[in-house]
């Protein structure tokens, strides 16, 4: 019993050490820190842009169009760009070690399993606050922009806004873990970011695709399914939409871990 407790204690200590090391790595290079700040800043900027555009549209709209107006739509439009930055942040947590070659020293220091676990932990620890800041800022800036011109807006407590404010950051954090997995699989920043950008922007082509493909990339694609689940009138059951992203993230992370375990560093 005592021995088991001691083992668990040292296990916790080792995990904590690996995580602290990841934090030092994260905080001591510019790219990760700049990218975190950029994700938040871009969110605010896009929210102001889309909020202003929506204001213009609303003023010129007919009464029928005004009835269909959903202020969450312009408020969250920027997430299509911000998701790329947050996923890039996750990718960088793995890929910066390949670019510089420190991956060998890191694996030798903590082993493959604990390194991946610590990187997943670090991805959540960095992406979650960034996502919360990004989405809340996006909401606040766009609502304030629209409200100042008399366009109807939603309060943070409104159920339609609340689900986005609470679950949205989790969706973005999940995409950061997708980025991390791609970083581990592609073993380089450029490749990982290119793949993740292509993956996340593919739904843009939904409207010009034939029927069945339009459904796959426009409705069931992991990031689209999750974003649609946050809207006031989701076209999939909410849990299904979020479940698709959660499942996709779990499978991709599992594949990345298995590949990392089995191959030479």
């Amino acid at each position: 019993m005592k021995a088991a407790d001691a083992m668990r204690a040292t296990g916790t200590m080792k995990a904590a050490g690996a995580l602290r090391a990841e934090w030092t790595k994260f905080a001591s290079i510019r790219a990760t820190v700049v990218l975190s700040g950029a994700a938040v800043a871009v969110s605010g900027l896009l929210a102001w842009l889309f909020g202003s555009a929506a204001t213009r549209d609303y003023t010129e709209a007919t009464a029928a169009e005004r009835l269909r107006f959903d202020p969450m739509d312009p408020a969250m439009r920027g997430v299509f760009i911000v998701q790329l930055l947050v996923a890039g942040l996750g990718a960088l947590i793995a890929s910066s070690e390949y670019g510089s070659g420190t991956i060998a020293a890191s694996v030798a220091a903590v082993g493959r399993r604990r390194l991946v676990a610590a990187k997943a932990g670090m991805t959540v620890l960095s992406a979650l606050p960034v996502s919360v800041a990004a989405i809340w800022l996006m909401f606040g800036v766009s609502m304030a922009t629209m409200a100042s011109h008399g366009v109807p807006t939603l309060g943070a407590g409104d159920p339609a806004a609340l689900i986005t404010l609470l679950v949205g950051p989790l969706v973005l954090t999940s995409l950061a873990l997708v980025g991390l997995s791609l970083g581990l699989l592609a073993r380089g920043t450029a490749a990982a970011v290119n793949i993740s950008t292509a993956l996340l922007l593919l739904p843009v082509f939904a409207t010009v695709s034939p029927g069945w493909l339009r459904n796959v990339i426009g409705v069931y694609w992991p990031n689209t399914a999750a974003f649609r689940a946050l809207s006031a009138d989701p076209d999939l059951p909410r849990l299904l939409g979020l479940g698709i992203l959660a499942g996709f993230t779990a499978v991709l992370l599992g594949v990345a871990f298995a590949r990392f375990e089995s191959r030479d560093v």
């Binding site: 080792k14 050490g17 602290r20 030092t24 020293a105 220091a109 903590v110």
Partner: peptide
């Protein structure tokens, strides 16, 4: 060196 030291407590 700091991150390597931290990784092994």
């Amino acid at each position: 060196l700091r991150y390597l030291a931290q990784s092994n407590s």
